[in-house]
């Protein structure tokens, strides 16, 4: 299929492994799905310590299940990406380990304590849900199929995240102050979740034309802003002075001054060069290197010596 035909036919769940897709499409889809899969893994990675730190048995169970779901989403997404025939799962995981795999900006920052957890589990997951909901209509069918399951489970995560937020927001004055501090720190990063503004987005236009993306970064960011400013207010959180957010009363509409966001930091993060992100990648690399022996042992046991069972044969 040539690229013009792809653009002409592009529509929800239009293409699958049975279609002869041009390389340009397959590469664009791989880039997008691999990014999403990597983000699930790195998101799980920064949330994991909060399984241990959860302050009740039920919370501990819920955070463990959530981290598990995210690894499961990564597994589904790598599979959907593999079907494009560009890279294998092993190659994508190796890239992530080596620091060449890209992932969401928010997962390059450390989560310092429980007060910061709802910034990820409610706001970032809420933002992810907004984007993912539009991807149910993406043109690569295996991606859309994975998204169906992801959205279903993500709904539970956000409910749990909101419950954590509510508990802290109705706690002591000190709790509320710490929550506000966490919000001020995370809010600008959360707004950058949707990526650069459309005029600076390198791959956005093509992805829209071939139906991989169905909504632009700017539209998604605005939709999120208008849904989540009221939610933040509901829990007593105040927007920081910057980035400025203007409320247009006539249209009941919030608008963010995108130039107030630190795009230099964003692009450093996006290149995997931001110090805390580099730290996360390196820690994960070490953790993966430490279990390399297991993969070696099960992939080529004969090199490590014969098994007693085999010796008896």
């Amino acid at each position: 299929m040539d690229i013009d035909t792809v653009k002409e036919r592009a529509g929800p769940r239009e293409f699958g492994p049975g279609d002869d897709m041009p390389r340009e499409y397959r590469e664009a889809a791989t880039r997008m799905i691999q990014f999403h899969a990597n983000s699930e893994i790195m998101g799980a990675y920064i949330e994991r310590p909060f399984i241990r730190q959860a302050p009740s048995l039920d919370r501990k169970l819920a955070v463990s299940a959530q981290v598990q779901d995210e690894v499961g989403h990564g597994q589904l997404l790598y599979r959907a990406a593999e079907e494009l025939g560009i890279k294998t799962r092993e190659e994508m995981l190796d890239e992530l380990e080596a620091g060449d795999g890209k992932f969401l900006n928010c997962f390059h920052y450390p989560l310092d304590d429980w007060y910061e957890l709802p910034m990820i589990m409610f706001f970032v997951d809420g933002a992810a849900m907004r984007r993912q909901a539009t991807l149910k209509r993406t043109s690569w069918e295996p991606y859309a199929h994975a998204i169906d399951k992801i959205c279903f489970e993500e709904g539970f995560h956000i409910k749990h995240g909101e419950d954590i937020l509510r508990t802290i927001a109705t706690g002591s004055k000190r709790d509320r102050e710490r929550l506000q501090a966490a919000f001020e720190k995370w809010w600008p990063r959360i707004l950058q979740f949707f990526g650069p503004t459309d005029d600076q987005s390198t791959h956005g236009e093509f992805a829209m034309e071939v139906g991989l993306k169905t909504m632009s970064n700017d539209d998604l960011r605005n939709a999120f802003l208008n849904a989540y400013v009221p939610k933040a207010k509901k829990y007593g959180l105040e927007l920081p002075e910057y980035p400025r957010v203007e409320y247009h009363e006539a249209d009941d509409y919030y608008e963010v001054y995108e130039e107030d966001l630190d795009w230099e930091e964003f692009f450093t993060v996006a290149k995997n060069e931001y110090p805390t992100g580099v730290g996360q990648i390196e820690k994960r690399e070490r953790a993966q290197a430490a279990v390399e022996w297991v993969r070696d042992a099960i992939e080529s046991p004969e090199q490590g010596g014969v098994s007693p069972a085999a010796a008896d044969d």
Partner: peptide
């Protein structure tokens, strides 16, 4: 599975 290799 691990016991199949000497290292394991």
């Amino acid at each position: 599975r691990l016991a199949e290799s000497r290292a394991g």
